[in-house]
């Protein structure tokens, strides 16, 4: 109906922002996730990024630059969150987070294509694996509880999830390679 996402003609800046945010949120979330894989921290950072981006949106003159611009905001919020959680377990050093974020910002279009390809790749997973993966990543799901329910050890479930992730990544790479070579 209205201009989808990069609209520069939208009369309502809220609407323009909402459309851009809705469109690019998945790859921004993946970008944040790569720098801090704990789901709760990702949610926290995404909330901060969305608020900061919304407040600063009037200063963005070229809406085609929204993904890159939002990545810069996200990078700052990631580093702030990293400092808040510095005493936590498995918190990456700041220089590594900065490097992941800097390179990740250059790959935002790759993130978009990977997320698109994942729809089909997840569908291709055998049903049992697909359901297991989705159950493991469900909000509030506990690997310990899931392992108990399935009669498996936590370790074997973690290994299986790693294999599923790796399988999905191979599928994504294969899909994108095929697209790149398509006439």
């Amino acid at each position: 109906m209205d201009s989808e996402n990069h609209t520069t003609a939208s009369a309502d800046p809220n609407e323009g922002f909402l459309r851009l945010w809705t469109h690019h949120e998945p790859e921004l979330r993946a970008f944040v996730h790569a720098c801090m894989p704990q789901a709760a921290e990702v949610d926290e950072v995404m909330q901060e990024v969305s608020l900061a981006a919304w407040r600063k949106f009037p200063t963005l003159t070229d809406h085609t630059q929204f993904p890159r611009w939002a990545c810069l905001i996200a990078r700052y919020e990631i580093l702030m969150a990293r400092r808040r959680h510095a005493r936590g377990r498995l918190v990456l050093d700041e220089d590594i987070v900065a490097k992941l974020a800097e390179e990740g910002a250059e790959e935002i279009s790759v993130r978009h294509r990977q997320l698109d390809a994942l729809d089909a790749c997840i569908t291709k997973l055998p049903r049992e694996r697909r359901e297991l993966a989705l159950a493991a990543y469900a909000p509030g799901a506990s690997i310990k509880d899931l392992a108990a329910q399935l009669g498996r050890t936590e370790g074997s479930l973690y290994q299986l999830l790693a294999r599923i992730r790796q399988e999905l990544l191979r599928c994504v790479e294969h899909t994108l390679a095929q697209e790149a070579h398509a006439p």
Partner: peptide, 14 residues
């Protein structure tokens, strides 16, 4: 970053 993207997608779908 790519594996995290896989995780982000699974989290979104889940």
């Amino acid at each position: 970053r790519s594996l995290s993207t896989v995780e982000a997608k699974l989290t979104q779908l889940a």
